[in-house]
Structures are given as structure tokens and as C-alpha cells.
Amino acid sequence: MQQIIQDIESRFTITDKETRRNDLCFLTVDKLQAISLVTYLRDYQGYASLTLLTAVDWIEEGNFQLTYLLNNPSTRTEIGVRTMIDRENATMESTHHLWENIQTYQRELKEMFGIDFPGSPRIDEDFILEGWDNIPPYRRDFDTKKYSEETYFPRPGRETNDPSTYMKSKLYPND
């Protein structure tokens, strides 16, 4: 694992790395290098299997983190390639030529985060949601509870009391 990381570091600019276990580490690279890094890992280091592709919304920093988690079946190790993309007009190069299954991930990211992958097959079709007209739901600024209460309104007639305020109001009505 260390060897591979060293090898990668000699070829790519790794801005951050985090070794979680002996068989799992995460590397952060620039958006421009991400695709070439995953391609390199796939073609030359045996990380042929894509475990997952997902995004994390770091809304405070205005970034989406994309994680390509690659698995090497022979060495039984995994490398997560992280890259930050801009939250505004989030776009990433599609990698559907590398793995057939990645288009599903990309469709999901398009729908749930609003990250576009131009050229990916069926990218503009609805994947999970149907007729969704709000901000993409997995973004942090989408408040699911609020949306649910406004749209599907819970059954009325429920009320609750906070023990502390209830006690205060009953025991010390004047305080």
C-alpha cells in the first residue's frame, strides 16, 4: 500500500492523504488530475473494480467532494480518490468509458446533488425521483423535514411539553 501511494505521489500531486486501515486509504487530488489518477489506478495498478462513486456536500467551503473508491481484487486493498469540485455549476468529467456501471452512480449524483457529468448515458433521465422541482435533495441546504411537513403534513393533534418549561410553568407560574 505504501509503495503504491509513493508511486502515485511521484506522478500526481496529492494534496491530502488519510490512511484509514491497512487496506484502505484516501487520497485527495485536484479536479483536473482526478480522472487521470483513476485511469492510472485502473490500468496500471490493478484497481480495476469501482466500488463506489459518491459525493459529499461541504457547503461551508462551497465544495462537493467526489469520492471514487477503487478496489484492487488481487492485493485486496482499496483506494479512495477524493477530489473537490465547485458547488456552483458543479460539473465533472464523465468516466463511463472506464466502467459500465458508473453511469448509474453519475445519474444518481446528477439527480441527488445536481452534479453534471456531460456525456454520460441517460444522464438527463429521471433516475429515482419523478417530477422533482426542488433543489437536489441530497444537498445540505435542502431541509427534508421542512419539505415533508409542508408537503405531506403530519397528522394533527399532537402536542408535546418540554419537561423543564412545563415544570417551571406549573411549579413557579410567576417566574
Binding site: 399532537r158 402536542e159 411539553n161 419537561p163 412545563y166 415544570m167 406549573k170 411549579l171
Partner: peptide, 21 residues
């Protein structure tokens, strides 16, 4: 779970009891 009044509170007992939906 909601907390609904059951009896008047005393010190150490809020007088509320859980109501389950």
C-alpha cells in the same frame, strides 16, 4: 413520543408522561 400532562409536577417529577404515536 410526546410528553403529555398526567399530574401536577412535583420536584423531580415533571408530571408528564410519554404518549406514543
Amino acid at each position: 413520543i410526546d410528553l403529555v400532562p398526567f399530574k401536577d409536577p412535583v420536584s423531580g417529577d415533571s408530571g408528564l408522561r410519554p404518549r406514543v404515536d
